[in-house]
Amino acid sequence: MTGTILFTIACLVVLGLLFSVVLYFVAQKFKVEEDPRIEIVESIMPGANCGGCGHAGCHAFAEAVVKAPSVEGFFCPVGGNATMAKVAAALGQEAVEKEPMVAVVRCNGSFGNRAKTNQYDGYASCKVMSALYTGDTACKYGCLGLGDCVSACKFGAIKVNPEKGIAEVDENKCTSCGACVKACPKGVIEIRPKGKNGRRVCVSCVNKDKGAVTRKACSVGCIGCGKCAKACPFEAITVENNVAYIDFTKCKSCRKCVAECPTGAINAVNFPTPLPPKPAPAATPAPAPQNETENK
């Protein structure tokens, strides 16, 4: 009996030693030499591997930053300026401050604003739907509300509001990685600066149809009338293809355009006071996302 036990123990010990030696040599053989700074940078990274920076993941980003002569041109949208400062410090460089950005859904065509003209009955994916036809409303440009952006978002920052049927961004969670922008077949989502104190103005419409067509399809569509462009003191607004666009590099968030817009397609977000000049219904600000997150 004792002999068997001893024999078993001896066998296992010999086997263990044998394998550890083999493992040691294998590990030596396949060892990959890597710049130690890559590991350091990677440890600073958020580790979301979202690809928002344009690299395959955090490791690829770290590799690229270490190899590049300077951190300029590199930005981690998830970690933001704080992470980039740490990365720059680790590499002995100065970081370049970048304005915080946020994904903006440029469509306000909720069920109430944009009536359904037909009923979609296929796989719930915007991509499938838009490959098939123009969509279940008379607007062929707006948000389809089937949530390809939701499944693309790794941070749970975008949701399709079931009462409105359009995607909404939770700006506290959004890292502006741009995954939703790529996922949206309609090109409705744009990455824009968050603005001072989160205050910003944006045209919530991408409808390129002529004004009359847009008006029929949606009550808050941009009809390309150009009133906003005339009202803008900073020449930040251009109207092209029947739709206005606010250049965020020029916009000073004065909100003159918001008051001017006849359909309410221009949205002002996170302003504490209502508009002073025209108490138009158009000026209703978008729902404040902060409240939503608090509720969760």
């Binding site: 296929g122 994916s125 499938v128």
Partner: peptide, 12 residues
């Protein structure tokens, strides 16, 4: 299962 819906766009 809507097999073809997804196959079609992925094929493209």
């Amino acid at each position: 299962i809507p097999l073809l819906d997804l196959i079609r766009i992925n094929k493209a």
